[in-house]
Every structure is written in structure tokens, then in C-alpha cells.
């Protein structure tokens, strides 16, 4: 099967994730959108791996997962601690760092 289909699927997922990040205010949902974007990238990597017959793409995908795991742990911890101090999980409420 043509790799292009997978790539198009990957592009769509990525864009949905990006738009979601820009649109949603709930920090957890925004974070999920980031995860979706990472997963879309992974799909592209695996597709390329399959298309070129090289396993390196899968290795890269594997590392992306590891990094995503670390990122989720820290990110969620930040969300929880912000929620505890500000009673809010909205990314718009944390806007003190500005002009």
C-alpha cells in the first residue's frame, strides 16, 4: 500500500492536534493534543521506516515515546501543582508572564 495514505493521515492527525492546542483552554486537553501531535509524528516515522525498509524510523519512534512519557510526567505534575495553587486548570489563567 502506498505510504502516502499513512502520511496524509499523519498530517491530518497532526493538524487536528495543533488546532486543538490552539483552541482548547483546559490544560489537560491541550496536553492531550500535544500527545496526539507526537503520535502523528510517530506514525510518519513508522511509515517511513516501512517505506525505506530501515528500522531506524522505528527506533526514532521508540525514543519519541520515551521522551513523551517523561514529558507527560513532568507536565502533569506542573498542571497539578498549578491547579493546587490557583484552583484552575485553564491555560489562559496562567498569563502573568507578559509585557
Amino acid at each position: 500500500m502506498e505510504p502516502s495514505y499513512y502520511l496524509v493521515l499523519s498530517a491530518m492527525l497532526f493538524t487536528i492536534g495543533a488546532v486543538g492546542f490552539m483552541v482548547r483552554r483546559n490544560a489537560i486537553v491541550a496536553f492531550m493534543c500535544v500527545e496526539l501531535m507526537l503520535n502523528a509524528c510517530n506514525l510518519a516515522l513508522v511509515t517511513f521506516s516501512h517505506a525505506w525498509g530501515l528500522l531506524d524510523g522505528q527506533v526514532a519512534s521508540f525514543f519519541v515515546m520515551v521522551v513523551a512519557a517523561a514529558e507527560v510526567v513532568v507536565g502533569l505534575a506542573i498542571i497539578v501543582s498549578i491547579y493546587r495553587t490557583r484552583r484552575s486548570a485553564s491555560v489562559d489563567d496562567a498569563n502573568l508572564l507578559k509585557f
Binding site: M1, P3, L7, S10, A44, F48, H50, G53, L55
Partner: peptide
């Protein structure tokens, strides 16, 4: 991306 891969997939059977 549509232009990225022009040939058909090689497949991972060999790798």
C-alpha cells in the same frame, strides 16, 4: 509529505 516518498514501499521483511 505527499511528495516525500515517490517509490513504493520496500517493506521491512528483509530488515
Amino acid at each position: 509529505l505527499g511528495n516525500a516518498v515517490v517509490t513504493g514501499p520496500v517493506g521491512l521483511t528483509e530488515a
